[in-house]
C-alpha cells in the first residue's frame, strides 16, 4: 500500500512536470502569435523559415539578442531561438566547438589566445560606450586621462589630489576576463593594470556600491547611467555621450560581437541580417541602451587601432 502511494506520487509529479512544460510551451507560443498580428504585414513577403538557433555568451549582449530573437520568432513562427548567457568566454568557446550557432562576445575573438579567430566569422551588431562612474561626494565630473590612470593604479589615494573633495578613493573593479574590464583597461587606462579593490560581476551591484560608498569609482556602460546616484565622468573634457563615441572623440567603447563558425547556415544568416537591419539597429539596439553600428563614423580593428570610416 505504501509503495503504491509512493508510485502514485511519483507519477503525479511526473505528470505535473509534463503539464507545466506543456503550459510553458503554450505560453511562449501564444505570446509569439499575439505579437505576430502587428508584424505580419512586413513578414508575409519573406520566405518560410523553420528550425532552431542556439545563441549564447556575453551577458551584456543577452538582453538585446533576446529582444531581437523575440521579434524574429514572432515573424517566423516556425523558428525557435534560444538565447543563453554564460559570459563572453563561454560564448567564444562554445561557438568554436560548434555547440552554439551564434556566440556572443564583448571582446574580439583575437584577444583570446586559444580561440582560432580565423575559423570564426565576426558580425559587429552594436556598439557600447563605457565610462567611469563616480560617487557624487567625490566632487569630480571630469578627469584627464592621466589623472584617471593615476586614480585607478592607486597613485592617487584622495580625490582632493585631482581637484575633488577630501574623500578617500575607493576602486570597484570587474573580474578578470570581463569584457567591460578589458575595454576599460585598454582604452581608458591605456593598458595599465588597475590597483586592488572590490571586485563585482554584475553592473547593477557595481552601481549600487558606487552610489552608496563615498569616494567610490568604477566603470560601466552608458545605458546604466539612468539617474543621479552616480556621476558620469567626462574624460579630457569630452562628455561621455553616444554622439562623442560615434564621432570618435570619446575613446572608451567596444563592439558587441556575434560570431559564427565559418559561414552561417541560411537560417542563422537571416537572423544576423535581421540583427543588422535598420529595424533592429534603430529599434531594439537603441531601446536596450546600445548604439547602432551604422551610426559610427570611426571603426576599430582587433588590435584596437581606430580609423575613420
Amino acid at each position: 500500500m505504501k509503495k503504491k502511494s509512493f508510485l502514485a506520487t511519483a507519477l503525479f509529479l511526473v505528470l505535473s512536470f509534463v503539464l507545466a512544460l506543456g503550459a510553458c510551451g503554450n505560453g511562449s507560443g501564444s505570446g509569439a502569435s499575439g505579437s505576430d498580428s502587428s508584424g505580419s504585414a512586413s513578414s508575409s513577403s519573406s520566405e518560410n523559415l523553420s528550425g532552431k538557433i542556439t545563441i549564447g555568451g556575453s551577458t551584456a549582449l543577452q538582453p538585446l539578442a533576446a529582444q531581437a530573437a523575440q521579434d524574429f520568432m514572432s515573424k517566423h513562427p516556425d523558428v525557435q531561438i534560444d538565447v543563453q548567457g554564460g559570459g563572453s568566454g563561454t560564448g567564444l568557446s562554445e561557438v568554436s566547438a560548434g555547440n552554439f550557432d551564434i556566440g556572443m562576445s564583448d571582446v574580439f575573438a583575437e584577444s583570446k589566445s586559444n580561440i582560432d579567430a580565423s575559423a570564426l566569422k565576426d558580425y559587429k551588431v552594436a556598439v557600447v560606450g563605457m565610462t567611469a562612474a563616480v560617487n557624487p561626494k567625490a566632487g569630480v565630473k571630469n578627469l584627464s586621462k592621466e589623472d584617471l590612470q593615476k586614480v585607478f593604479t592607486g597613485k592617487v589615494k584622495n580625490w582632493k589630489e585631482v581637484g575633488g573633495k577630501d574623500v578617500k578613493v575607493e576602486l570597484v573593479n570587474r573580474p578578470d576576463g570581463s569584457g567591460t574590464r578589458a575595454t576599460f583597461d585598454e582604452f581608458a587606462l591605456d593598458g595599465e593594470t588597475p590597483a586592488e579593490g572590490i571586485t563585482q560581476d554584475s553592473t547593477n551591484t557595481v552601481k549600487k556600491i558606487i552610489s552608496e560608498h563615498d569616494g567610490a569609482i568604477g566603470y560601466m556602460a552608458f545605458s546604466y547611467f539612468t539617474d543621479d546616484s552616480v556621476v558620469k565622468l567626462s574624460i579630457d573634457g569630452v562628455e561621455a555621450t553616444d554622439e562623442n563615441v560615434a564621432s570618435g572623440k570619446f575613446p572608451v567603447w567596444a563592439y558587441e560581437h556575434m560570431y559564427t563558425k565559418g559561414d552561417p547556415s541560411p537560417l542563422v544568416k537571416s537572423f544576423i541580417d535581421y540583427m543588422m537591419s535598420d529595424e533592429v539597429q534603430n529599434g531594439a539596439v537603441k531601446d536596450t541602451g546600445y548604439m547602432p553600428v551604422t551610426d559610427m563614423k570611426v571603426e576599430r580593428d582587433a588590435e584596437g587601432k581606430q580609423t575613420e570610416k
Binding site: 551577458t59 548567457g85 554564460g86 559570459g87 563572453s88 568566454g89 563561454t90 567564444l92 568557446s93 566547438a97 583570446k112 589566445s113 586559444n114 580561440i115 573580474p175 578578470d176 576576463g177 570581463s178 569584457g179 571586485t199 560581476d201
Partner: peptide, 11 residues
Amino acid sequence: TLSMGNSTYGS
C-alpha cells in the same frame, strides 16, 4: 564563479 564565464575553455 566570477571569472569562469569570462574565460575560454583551454585558456
